[in-house]
Amino acid sequence: MSLRLAGWLIEVENLSAGQQAMVAAEFGGLATTNKQRTRQVTAICNAARLGRPVGMPLESFAVNGEYAPRVVRDGSLVEITGFNSVVLFERGPRQPLLCSLAVAAEDELASPFVLGTFLRTLLAYLALDWRGVLLHCAGILHHGRAYLFAARSNVGKTTLGRKALAAGFSVLSDEMNLALPCEGGYRACSVPFTGELRRELQSGVDDGCFPLGGVVLLEQGQPLSASHVRPAMAVAGLLTACPFVNCDTEELPALLDALTHLVSCVSVVRLAVGRDDSLEEVMGTLLRCCEHG
């Protein structure tokens, strides 16, 4: 079975018939047929079974209130243990990227929690291979350019996404988006994962890439204000917004490289936004700051 994410093709092998049906039901929008497989396979994932459940409580995977699977690195092998799954990645120059996703019970694999988390993790590693980053952020389109609002949970990404939709703007995702280098700069690419705006974004921007206009370190605050962020502060701020790979110490050099290059090419702005600020006011403040950079 093949899944297509952000233009990358992921081949999932060894699914049982039941798992194929469940993946099709939960992630059918990502499935691609052989006729559509014009791209080279980016990653091959082996679906496997654990001999027994992981057996650790969900709370043991919480760091600062966020779900954080445990990453253990052994040379080129990355083992990521989650609540009810174990993922292995083989890192290195070889393409496609080889990985496996193992669960104890057959019906666990296709759950949004297990397969969704696996695909998010895979995207984070693939992005690094392309010298880009997967960012915890809301992506908003403004006159054909994408602006990524990076923030931790409960800072206002979804609220901003809602305001954008209400104001007639397109939203890539209110949870995470890719920033990938391209000729002449960076592009922001949507990924099929959303926060609370899942229903609203189902008919929205699909698998699109757009020129990246700017990156925002989003904060709650009044009055509405924007200020340029020095490159080192921008790298430090964005490090915390790069899920999965930012807790893999072996990937840190590549992640720092990717972020250093990103902030050297794209404006990074610290933006304080209040609950009552309209999207027009927010974008106006942001764009003025970007223009004067």
Partner: peptide, 21 residues
Amino acid sequence: RFRTVAEEGVLVHLRRGQVIV
């Protein structure tokens, strides 16, 4: 680990996850 960014430095404490500029 540290990295030079522009003329400043970014330090990352691997165990604590602390980032210092």
